[in-house]
Amino acid sequence: MTVYLDHAATTPMLPEAIAALSAQLTTTGNASSLHASGRHARRIVEESRESVARALNCRPGEVVFTSGGTESDNLALKGIFWSRRAEDPRRTRILASAVEHHAVLDPLDWLAEAEGAEVELIGVDHAGRLDLDALRASIERDPGTVALVSVMWANNEVGTLEPLDEVVALASEHRIPVHTDAVQAVGSVPVDFARSGVDALSLSGHKVGGPFGVGALVVRRELAVTALMHGGGQERDIRSGTIDAPAIAGLAAAVELSVKHQPEHSARVSVLRDDLVRRVQEAVPGAIYNGSAGQRLPGNAHLTFPGCEGDSLLMLLDARGIECSTGSACSAGVPQPSHVLLAMGFTEADARGALRFSLGHTSTAADVEALVQAIGPCVERARAASVRGR
C-alpha cells in the first residue's frame, strides 16, 4: 500500500474534476470558432471562467487561462515588467522574496540577464516570513524605479504564509503593482483576490485537484500586461493559443470545490498534521519542526532530521511505500541544499537533512500511523549511512 504524503507536489484529481474534464473530451469544437460546436466550447470556457471568478472573488474578465503556475508566473513577471518599463524607462527594479518558487526566481534571473532588470531578493526570518522593514527600505530608497513586487502567498517548502496584506499596503503607497504566486494557497487557506489588494495572482490546476497542464493568472483589467506569446489573440490578447476547453472545465470544477470546502478541509488536515508532527518528534527525538508555528498551510509538516541526508531518508521511506519530498531541489542530478532553507538561516548540513510531508484531501489517520511506525528505523539507517559516507 502506498502512503502518499506529497500533496504539495501534486494532489489526486477530484472525482468532479475528472467528470467535468471527461465530459468535454468527446465534444468537438474550437472555442474561437463561430459555428455551433465552437459556440458550445466557448460557453464551457466562459462558464468556467465565471466559476473561477466566483470562487476567488474577482471579475470574470480578470481570469486569464494558462498552462499552469509556471506560465502564469512568467506571464505576470515579464508581462508586467515590460509594460511598466515601457510606460516609464526608470522602472527597472523588481522586488521579490528570497524564498520564492523557481517559477518566479528563474524568470527573474532571465529578466536580469536578458532585459537589464535589477532584481532585489528580500530576506526572511528563521520561520520564512518576509522582512517587511527590508522591503519598505528597498521601496522607499527609490520608489519610482520599482516596476513590481512579487511575494508568494504561501511557501511551497515550509508552508509559511507571507504577510501579503502588509506587502500590498507598502507597495500601494507608491502605486506599485503586486503579484503573488498563490499556487499552494488556493483551496488550503482563504484566498480572496479583491480583498487581498494584489494586482496579479497565479494558480495551478493540479495543486487543487484539477488536471495537469492548466492554470490561470488572475490579473486586474486596469493593469497592462505585455504578451509572452503572439498569435490568435485569445485570453485578452495576452495569452494566445487554442483554448483547452476540457482542461479548463476540470480546473473550474476543482477550484470551485476546493474553495467551497476549504474551511473543513483545513480543519481536518491541520489536526492530522499536528498529530504527525507530535508523533514523529516523539519517535525521533531531536527532529525539528520548521516554518511558522501559527501562520502556515494546514497540510504542511516540514521537519529536519539532524545527522541525516534527506535524499537517503526519502528513499528509505519510499522503499516502505511512504512518499514525501526532500527540502532540496536537484540540479543536473546533483543534490543542492534548498535555497528556501538557506535563506531562513539554515546551515547547508541542516538544509540537506529536511523532509516535507504534505497532506491533502485523500490523507487519513492511517497515513500518519504508517509514517510514525516507519520513521524511527528509517532515520537510524539514514544516520548510519551518513556516518559511513564521511
Results as ranks from 00 to 15, higher is better:
N57R: 14
R49G: 10
G61L: 12
V63T: 02
A53T: 07
R59E: 13
A53W: 07
N74I: 12
D73R: 04
V52K: 02
E71Y: 06
V52R: 04
G61K: 09
E50I: 12
E46W: 09
E50N: 14
N74K: 14
A53K: 06
A55C: 08
N57C: 13
N74C: 14
P60F: 05
E50A: 15
S67Q: 13
R49L: 09
A55E: 01
E46G: 06
N74G: 15
R49Y: 09
D73L: 04
G68S: 03
E50K: 13
E50R: 14
L77G: 05
S72A: 15
R54A: 13
G69S: 01
T70P: 11
E71N: 04
E46D: 11
L75C: 01
E71S: 09
A76K: 00
E62Q: 14
A55T: 07
R49F: 11
S67G: 11
R59I: 10
S51T: 15
V52M: 02
S48V: 03
S48W: 00
N57V: 13
C58A: 06
S48D: 06
G61F: 13
N74L: 14
L56F: 05
A76G: 06
G61T: 08
S48K: 10
P60G: 04
E62A: 06
E71L: 04
S67W: 15
C58Q: 07
P60W: 10
D73T: 09
T66M: 02
S72V: 06
S67I: 15
S48Q: 00
A55Q: 03
D73A: 14
N74Q: 15
S67T: 15
V63A: 01
L75I: 01
C58L: 11
G61N: 14
V52S: 04
V64S: 08
S51N: 11
L56W: 05
E62C: 08
G68A: 00
S51G: 11
T66N: 02
E46K: 01
E71P: 03
N57Y: 10
G61M: 07
E47R: 14
G68C: 01
S51Y: 11
S72R: 04
G61S: 09
A76Y: 00
D73P: 07
V64E: 09
R49S: 08
L75Q: 01
N57S: 15
E47V: 11
L56Y: 07
F65C: 00
E46L: 10
R54C: 13
T70N: 13
E46C: 06
V52N: 03
E71K: 02
R49W: 07
N57W: 09
F65D: 02
T70H: 13
V64Q: 10
A55H: 05
E46P: 09
S48G: 08
N74M: 14
P60V: 04
A76E: 07
C58N: 07
L56E: 00
G69Y: 00
L77D: 02
L77I: 14
S72T: 02
S67E: 15
A55K: 06
S72W: 01
E50Q: 15
F65T: 01
D73I: 05
L56K: 01
L56S: 00
A53D: 03
E47F: 05
T66I: 04
E47A: 13
E71Q: 11
A76M: 00
G68E: 02
E47H: 10
P60T: 08
G69H: 06
N74H: 12
A53M: 04
E62G: 02
R54V: 12
G68R: 02
